[in-house]
Design a protein around this nucleic acid. Structure first.
Length: 924
RNA sequence: GGGCGAUUGGCUCAGUGGUUAGAGCACGCGGUUCACAUCCGCGGGGUCACUGGUUCGAAUCCAGUAUCGCCCACCA
């Protein structure tokens, strides 16, 4: 069914190519068409803005989306699929508007996440990072990502993402490596990157430091132990058995690193001991009692042990008081270098041992359950330990200020805007960013140290020639063994992918990019850092709009996770329902910044919709009037041949264009699918096609008018296909191949032009509205009276006086759609035939009445009909009462806008008329 | 401790001041009409969480309350 003869040219416009003639298959099977169509797009080279098949003008404004690069270690989940669907939607729309649309694909090496995954695989094989060593470990990683890479790229193709594959990038490729080096060197030269010893978050499981963002606060119940420290006798220098100060701690093992006890300066209980010394047990170290505001006298005993190397508060206190800062934990969080018997014990084993020993000494004063907040590693869930390390940091203050300025000035807009507050809060409280990781898989930090301790940062691929300070040759320099936080290379992504730091043509043309679309959960990890680094390094924010989507949850609202087993595989879904259905379902549920639940019902809605479109297209294409030659080029019907039906169809399509445009402009993606679903199904299929059918089948309608009806249907189908293409690219492209084209239309829908909304009449023909209401009312009366659905019944209809001609013209349609035959029209309701037992129909608006004559009026039928009229009367009277109350309120008529008041009066008139007519019909 | 969001029919969700609050699913009744049973027709079903306020008019704006969820936060 798809055209396979011409896959290279997309600009052929010859009329002979107007139809393919193969027709659409009777049944719609997505899997039959989707793969072949993606191949056609690839062959036609339409994805790249500068591809052979592109219809973007050379000077066209660019529209760029750099794909948020999925982690190379996994496969795509529904969240990826949703983002890709939304991004592809925007790109396809931009492409159809003639812009130079670039959708650049990429992959992220995902340093720590990848190591975590590989480490687990290695563990199953009885190997480990340590057993392999750095070189073999990295080789193994390369092997691993080579296979996963293909899985991901295949999934994106299957989804129909129109990514420019020739521009595929990877955060570990040479271009990214260069960008990382140059970015770091630039930041260093500007004193925005510095090396310093600081307390960092250490994950003992991952054996690396992690950033503040990667530490997850976890409320847990622990124990608060009270421990007695003995004061020192100034005379003897020995601890006093009976003079103690009691401190409280949740981590008793850290007493090995204590270098002070702190109390509040105004705390009378401890005023006398400030300045004295206490002995720390086991390490037998004498440390001072200091006074500091940080201590809350009301908490615990009011005396706090200070461990400057392993606690953030204590570290600050230690700095203020010039305290020593002994480190007591090694990389695995075992006790180390304390000179005690605990050395070599795991932190928790040591904790128990220390508690037992304290108790034995009589210095454990008490314990109580305690609610505390533990920091756990985002990746491994290990409890993170604060630890002193010399690391590289990015000075975020100035960068954050610039990022804030960008959102405040409107240069960068966040959708939805309520995230502005979150953005502001985070960026105004941001701390310097630790970018050193003690991992192997990633970009090595381009800093070299000479034996004298001088630091040389180089952006050269081979490193520096020598020490920047003392000139020692490179051979004597040692490169920092650490790598960068994976988000450092991610932060450069919008420009590193376009060639930065080189002034490439792509960078000039496509940077700054247009929209960043991603989940709100990585707004700090990634989005904020791209904005900060983009502004600092390129002078411009990397995109003008941040569109935030939500999480895809399971039907119960639970987060999807492998351990819960509720993960939905996009590939399986696409096999079952098609990529189009998946895309539609995901976009349909998208409300900016909100999570959505995803289940089979949503997918079914989408699949059914694709099927509906397919069948509507089959009908339209098959309904070509015989007078029109099969290969005749498509023409626009002259205005004079259009009737109410045609004008209505046209106006509804135009209204859908407007609605879709609005959704796009406001990043309200769910509104787009809603407008299309309604427009195509409830308007075009339910009424447009049904009304047109009657005219097309009517031999008495002049051929020119029948041709006009058909071409109106084709025009509308054409418009809907274009509008729907960004959402459901495959089915629309497949149908497009069969739709006769206008001169200038390309062979492939993907590069067809977007429907213009200007100059279209979106005001629907009011007459059709009345006729639709009439048909519905007739059907209703029949169904309520239990008339068999298929029965053709004699019907008498009195249309509104001023609409008689329109009703007369559409009488065949009314007759068919309401199964009214014979149907007679009467100029006045008074003249309506009212045989005994006829069903009475009274429309609320427009002075429309009808009677339906059942073949044999039973009491039952009559009773049901009267009951329906009674219900309608009660309802109408209720509304009438409300309308009169409103109009009776003087302040309403005085203060409400005249149009609203006029509307209320009209409504009141209609209702009172309807009530009167209903009463009359009921014989009251 | 701060901040954000949600609360609308049985379910999932639209709907940011104006007539009668919508959709899909589910439900009930009826349909082999020549595009579609992945369909067609008709119907039932909602005090828009609660309280107060602003307004001629509130699902919608404001204040507060409740429940659920999320984010941020160094108190031992």
């Amino acid at each position: 069914m798809t055209d396979t003869t011409s896959t290279t040219s997309t600009t052929t416009t010859a009329p002979s190519a107007a139809t393919k003639g193969d027709g659409l298959a009777r049944a719609y099977r997505p899997s039959d068409v989707e793969g072949a169509i993606y191949e056609r797009w690839l062959a036609a080279d339409v994805f790249a803005p500068d591809g052979a098949g592109s219809r973007a003008r050379a000077d066209a404004e660019s529209f760029t989306i750099i794909q948020p690069p999925p982690n190379i270690t996994g496969s795509l989940h529904l969240g990826h699929a949703q983002r890709a669907a939304v991004e592809d939607l925007m790109i396809r729309h931009a492409r159809m508007t003639g812009r130079a649309a670039l959708f650049l694909p990429g992959l992220d090496h995902a340093s720590i996440a990848a190591q975590f995954v590989l480490d687990r695989i290695l563990a199953e094989e009885g190997e480990s990072r340590q057993s392999l060593g750095r070189e073999r470990y990295l080789e193994r990683m390369q092997e691993f990502v080579t296979t996963t890479r293909e899985v991901i790229l295949g999934q994106e193709r299957r989804l129909g993402a129109s990514l420019d594959w020739d521009r595929l990038r990877y955060t570990m490729d040479d271009g990214s490596a260069k960008a990382v080096r140059v970015a770091f060197k630039t930041l260093y030269d500007r004193e925005l990157a510095y090396r310093s010893e600081a307390l960092v978050n250490w994950c003992p499981g991952c054996r690396t430091s992690v950033s503040d963002l990667e530490v997850i606060s976890s409320p847990e119940t622990g124990t608060l132990w009270s421990i007695r420290y003995h004061l020192i006798d100034d005379a003897t220098g020995e601890p006093l058995p009976d003079e103690t100060v009691t401190v409280a701690t949740t981590r008793p093992e850290t007493i090995l690193g204590d270098t002070a006890v702190a109390v509040h300066p105004d705390d009378d209980r401890y005023r006398t001991i400030v300045g004295r010394r206490v002995r720390i047990p086991f390490v037998e170290r004498d440390v001072p009692v200091i006074a500091d505001d940080v201590v809350d006298p009301a908490f615990g005993t009011g005396a706090v042990k200070i461990t400057p190397a392993h606690d953030h508060d204590d570290h600050e206190t230690g700095k203020r008081h010039g305290l020593p800062m002994p480190t007591i934990l090694d990389d695995a969080a075992a006790i180390a270098a304390t000179g005690t018997a605990y050395d070599g014990l795991d932190r928790y084993v040591a904790r128990d041992a220390i508690l037992a020993d304290l108790a034995a000494r009589g210095d454990l004063a008490g314990e109580q359950p305690h609610e505390l907040v533990l920091g756990r590693c985002d990746r491994s869930n290990d409890v993170v330990e604060p630890r002193l390390k010399t690391q590289w940091f990015i000075r975020t203050g100035p960068l954050a200020a610039a990022a804030l300025a960008a959102t405040r000035s409107g240069a960068v807009r966040i959708v939805p805007d309520r995230f502005d507050k979150t953005w502001e809060h985070w960026l105004t409280n941001i701390r310097d960013w630790n970018v050193s990781r003690q991992l192997w898989w990633g970009h090595r930090i381009p800093a070299w140290y000479c034996p004298d301790g001088h630091v040389t940062v180089s952006s050269e691929i081979d490193g520096p020639a020598g020490c920047d300070v003392c000139g020692r040759p490179a051979a004597e320099l040692r490169q920092d063994p650490d790598i960068f936080d994976t988000w450092f290379s991610s932060g450069l992504w919008p420009f590193s992918t376009l060639g930065w730091p080189d002034e490439t043509a792509d960078l000039r043309r496509f940077y700054p990019t247009s929209v960043l679309e991603t989940g709100w959960e990585i707004i700090f990890f990634w989005v904020a850092r791209m904005v900060m680094l983009g502004i600092e390094l390129t002078g411009r924010p990397p995109f003008h709009t941040i569109s935030l989507s939500g999480l895809i949850r399971d039907p119960l609202g639970k987060k999807m996770s492998k351990t819960k087993g509720n993960v939905v595989d996009p590939l399986a879904v696409m096999e079952e329902a098609g990529a189009d259905a998946l895309r539609f379902a995901l976009i349909h549920g998208a409300t900016a910044g909100m999570d959505q639940r995803f289940g089979p019902q949503k997918l079914e809605l989408a699949r059914n919709f694709a099927n509906k479109l397919w069948n509507a297209a089959r009908f339209v294409l098959g309904a070509r009037p015989a007078e029109l030659a099969a290969d005749a080029p498509r023409t626009t019907a002259p205005e004079s041949d259009l009737g109410p039906t045609e004008r209505w169809i046209r106006s509804r399509a135009a209204a859908t264009v407007e609605a879709v445009d609005r959704g796009l402009a406001e990043y309200q993606f769910g509104e787009i699918t809603r407008a299309l679903h309604d427009g195509i199904w409830s308007e075009f299929c339910d009424w447009g096609i049904e009304l047109a059918k009657v005219r097309l089948a009517d031999e008495t309608v002049p051929p020119a008018q029948r041709a006009a009806t058909w071409s109106t249907l084709v025009d509308a189908l054409d418009t809907y296909l274009r509008l729907l293409h960004p959402v459901m690219p495959f089915v629309t492209e497949a149908i497009w191949a069969e739709v006769p084209r206008r001169p200038g239309d390309p062979e492939l829908l993907i590069v067809a032009s977007w429907p213009a909304s200007e100059g279209r009449d979106t005001t629907s023909d009011a007459r059709i509205g009345e006729i639709v209401d009439t048909i519905v009312a007739l059907r209703n009366a029949r169904a309520q009276a239990s008339i068999p659905a298929g029965a053709w019944l004699e019907t008498h209809l009195a249309p509104p006086a001023d609409a008689f001609d329109a009703f007369e013209e559409l009488a065949p349609a009314i007759g068919r759609l309401a199964r009214a035959r014979p149907l007679s029209l009467h100029r006045q309701a008074a003249g309506l035939a009212r045989p005994a037992g006829a069903l009475e129909v009274v429309l609320p608006a427009g002075d429309i009445e009808a009677t339906i004559v059942p073949p044999a009026a039973s009491d039952d039928t009559i009773g049901r009909d009267r009951a329906r009229l009674e219900r309608e009367l009660v309802e109408a009277e209720g509304h009438l009462g409300a309308a009169r109350a409103r109009l009776g309120n003087a302040s309403f008529t005085e203060k409400a806008p005249p149009a609203v008041v006029a509307g209320a009066r009209r409504r009141e008139a209609e209702l009172s008329d309807q009530v009167a007519r209903l009463r009359e019909r009921l014989g009251r």
